[in-house]
Structures are given as C-alpha cells and as structure tokens.
C-alpha cells in the first residue's frame, strides 16, 4: 500500500509540533539556572585550566569573567 504524501506530511507536521523543544524560560522559573552548579567558575581547577588554554592560544589573559549565574534578574 502506498501512503499518500499529504498524510505523511500531516504526520510529520504534527510530530514537529509535538516534539519541538523550543520554550521560553520565564523569569520565575530560573531557580535552577541560578543555582551554584550552573556557574561557569564553580570549579577553580577547571577555571585555571581554561584560563591557561586561553592564554596559550590568544597570548592574552583576563577580561573573560562575568559574575553571577543564570538568574537573569533585573
């Protein structure tokens, strides 16, 4: 049996609508984003290593740190 292109298209459209991962995180839903594990500088060793790699590659250092986590407040 040959499936019709319209049916196939409809199924795919519905699947695309149902499985889309796009969503807006609302300001009041950012508790997890602002938690400590989400901080880019939470691990001092990894941070130092990353700085070292950056310095070796770019021949410059500093000016990369942004304070805070993903709260996005204010």
């Amino acid at each position: 049996m040959k499936s019709s292109p319209t049916l196939l298209r409809t199924v795919l459209v519905l699947a695309a609508l149902g499985t889309s991962g796009c969503t807006a995180v609302q300001p009041w839903e950012r508790a997890t984003l602002s938690s400590y594990p989400m901080r880019p500088d939470r691990d001092p060793l990894a941070q130092a290593m990353s700085e070292h790699i950056y310095f070796s590659r770019e021949a410059s250092t500093g000016g990369r740190s942004v304070g805070g986590s993903g709260c996005g407040c204010n």
Partner: peptide
C-alpha cells in the same frame, strides 16, 4: 523539504508562548 518545513513550524511554535 520536510526538514525545512519542520524548522519553520518549530520557529512559529516558539513565537506562540510569547
């Protein structure tokens, strides 16, 4: 073709909550 359509639909769906 279908992938392009799905990407477009995903984009429009993302606009709906806003």
């Amino acid at each position: 073709r279908l992938r392009r359509l799905a990407v477009l639909l995903g984009f429009f769906q993302a606009l709906i909550p806003a």
